[in-house]
Design a protein around this nucleic acid. Structure first.
Lengths: 330, 330
DNA sequence: TTGTATGCGTTATCAT
DNA sequence: ATGATAACGCATACAA
C-alpha cells in the first residue's frame, strides 16, 4: 500500500537514484524531472522508509530517555523538556520507564543500542551503574540528568537543591526571623541532606547558631508536615517561620497551622519546596522553592545533541539552580 | 565498534545464514555450531541491528502514542499503562506530545508511519480529525483512547464519567442526603456535560426533583470550588452534601468548609473527582470518583496489539467505568 | 545441517 | 543531468 522510491521511479520513468536526489533536495536533477518527481511523491503521499534510510546512512535521529517513572510529576516535566528540545532539532525521543530497576535499565540500554539511537539520557535513579559508565566512556553519547556518578565524570546536568534551600532560608532571615524551623523527610535521603546543607549554610552566613531542635525529620507527606508542625508547637519557644522542604509536607503544615487558628504569614511564615499542581491547592499562595525541571530536560537534551554532533561542550557538569518564588505565605 | 552477524560468521567460520539461525533460535543448526556461535556472540556483546532486522522482516515492534502533553497528571498515568502493557508484550512505545495541535498531530502521524510503527494510539485531544479516520480505515492499526469520533467508528477505549458521577450522587443519596449540590467547570466542556448527566440520572432514578440552584458552574480550580461553596451557602437552605466534580474544586470546597467552621462529614459531606497526588493533600481523606487512567492505557495498548496481530476484537468500543472510592469525607 | 542468493528501501560512489 | 551498482545488516526461500 505504501509507495517507495522504486515505485516513483517507475511512474516517472527515471532511475531510483534520481528520485532519491530529487526527494532529498540534492544537486544534479533537472528542473522538470525534479518537479515531476515531487509531484508524484506528493500525490501518493510518499513517506521515506526511515528504517532503510537510517540503515543506509548509518545514523538515526532518535535518542533514548531512561527514567524511573514517567507518571511522576517531577520526571514527566523533565521528559517534556527533553522532548521539546529534541524535536525542535529534528530528533525523536524514546522514553523508557525503569522503575529504578538496574536490570530493566540494562535491558533498555541494550534495546536502545540495537536500535542505533544516537544517544541516551539517564534521568534520576540514584547512582550510575558501571554499565553506563562503560558505555559513556567508550565514546557513546550519554548525558546524566540529575543523577550522581562516582569517580569517573560523565557529562551531566543537575539541579542543586542546596542553593534553593539556602535562598529559602535567607528569605525568611530577611523577613526578620531568626528561629527558622526546617521540615525534612528521612535524613538518609540525598535530597534531605542537600536541603539541610543549604539551610545550615544560610544560617552560618548570618552567624546564627544552628539549633538541632528546629530541624525535624518526618515522612515526605502531608501527614509528615502535619505532625512536624505539632512537634514544633511543643517547643518552649515555637518558631514563627517554617521551611517545609517538600510540597506535600508544606501542604500539611499549612493545614495544621490554619487548624490551629494561626494566620499565615502574620503568625507563622511558611516556605515550601517545588511548585506543581499540589501548590495550586494551597491557600494562601505559597512562597516556594521551585526546581527548573523542564529546563533540566531541555539542557540535558541540548548537551546530548551537542555531544552527538561533536560540538564542543562548554562545561562537563552543568548545575542548575532552584529559584525562590515569593508569594503570600511569607 | 559494534559487531555484526557477518563478523561472527567470519570468526566462527560459517555462513551468515547459519549465524542468523543460531541467534534466532531456529531449527537446523548443529549442536556444536550453535554453541560456538552463541559463545562468540555473547563474548562480543552482539546486539542485532533492529533497523536491518525490521527492514528485512517488514515489521517492527514499536507503537506510537500521541497525546496532548505527557507532563499532565492524567495523561502521564495513561502513558505508563500503555508502556507497561506494550513492553510486557515485547513492544516499545514512542510518545509524541501534540499539544492539541492538529498540525503537530499530522506531523507525528507521518513520522510514525515512515518509521513503520506497528500501530498508533491517539489519546485525548477532542474530536478525531479526518486524517486519523482515513488512516484507521485504510486498515492501519489505530486505537482511540478517551477520544471522540464522529460518524465512522474506530476501535476505541473510553472512560465514562457519567457512571462515576452517577455513583457519587447515589452514594450521597444513600447517606440520606436529598439536596445534593454539584460543582462543575464551565458548562461548555464535554466533561461537565457528562458529569452533570450522571448526576441528573441518579436523581431521576430516585424520583428526586432536579434543582437548578444546586448546580454551580465555576472554573476547574481550587478558587472555583471555594467560590462555589460560598455561593451555595447563600441559598435559603444550604445543601449538606456537595459533589465537587473536579479534584482542584474539591480541594477548594474542603478548604472553604473548614474555614467556615463546619465539620466534614458531620456538617457537610463532600465527594470529589479524580484521585491523584492532589487528593493526598486533602484532609479528611476524600471520598472520590476515580478514573481508571492507568487501565485506560493498558486496555488501549492491548486492543492495539490485538489489532496488530489480527486477533479478534471483542468489542469495537470498550467503555471503562470510573469507580467510587469511599473514604472519610462522606 | 549448512551455504547461496535475493530482497527489504534507501544512500552513495562511480560511470556515462 | 542521469543511471547502474554496491552497500547497510539481517531474514529467508531454495539448493546442496
Amino acid at each position: 500500500m505504501t509507495i517507495t522510491m522504486k515505485d516513483i521511479a517507475e511512474i516517472v520513468g527515471v532511475s531510483e537514484s534520481t528520485v532519491s536526489r530529487a526527494i532529498n533536495n540534492k544537486e544534479g536533477v533537472g528542473q522538470e524531472t525534479r518537479k515531476e518527481i515531487l509531484k508524484v511523491a506528493k500525490k501518493n503521499n510518499f513517506q521515506p522508509n526511515r528504517l532503510a534510510q537510517n540503515l543506509a546512512k548509518q545514523e538515526t535521529n532518535v535518542i533514548g530517555l531512561l527514567l524511573p517513572d514517567i507518571a511522576s510529576l517531577f520526571y514527566s516535566d523533565v521528559a517534556r523538556g527533553v522532548q521539546d528540545y529534541a524535536t525542535s532539532q529534528g530528533y525523536q525521543v524514546i522514553v523508557c520507564n525503569t522503575d529504578d530497576d538496574k536490570e530493566q535499565e540494562v535491558n533498555y540500554m541494550n534495546w536502545l543500542q540495537s536500535n542505533k539511537v544516537a544517544g541516551m539520557i539517564f534521568l534520576g535513579g540514584g547512582l550510575v551503574n558501571n554499565q553506563i559508565v562503560k558505555l559513556g566512556l567508550t565514546d557513546y553519547p550519554i548525558v546524566l540528568a540529575n543523577r550522581l556518578v562516582e569517580e569517573v565524570p560523565l557529562p551531566s546536568v543537575i539541579i542543586d537543591d542546596t542553593i534553593g534551600a539556602l535562598k529559602a532560608t535567607e528569605h525568611l532571615l530577611d523577613k526578620g526571623h531568626d528561629r527558622i524551623a526546617l521540615l525534612l523527610g528521612p535524613n538518609n535521603s540525598w535530597q534531605a541532606q542537600n536541603r539541610l546543607q543549604g539551610y545550615k549554610r544560610a544560617l552560618k552566613n548570618r552567624d546564627i547558631e544552628y539549633d538541632q531542635d528546629l530541624v525535624i525529620h518526618k515522612s515526605w507527606s502531608r501527614e509528615g508536615g502535619y505532625q512536624g508542625f505539632l512537634e514544633l508547637m511543643e517547643l518552649e519557644e515555637p518558631p514563627r517561620a517554617i521551611f517545609a522542604a517538600d510540597e506535600l509536607m508544606a501542604a500539611g503544615v499549612v493545614e495544621a497551622i490554619k487548624l490551629g487558628g494561626y494566620f499565615i504569614p502574620q503568625d507563622i511564615a511558611v516556605v515550601g519546596f517545588d511548585d506543581t499542581v499540589v501548590t495550586s491547592v494551597i491557600d494562601p499562595p505559597l512562597t516556594t522553592v521551585t526546581r527548573p525541571m523542564y529546563e533540566l530536560g531541555e539542557r540535558s537534551a541540548k548537551k546530548l545533541l551537542n555531544l552527538i554532533n561533536e560540538e564542543e561542550i562548554k562545561e562537563e557538569i552543568e548545575i542548575l539552580e532552584s529559584e525562590l518564588i515569593i508569594r503570600e505565605s511569607t
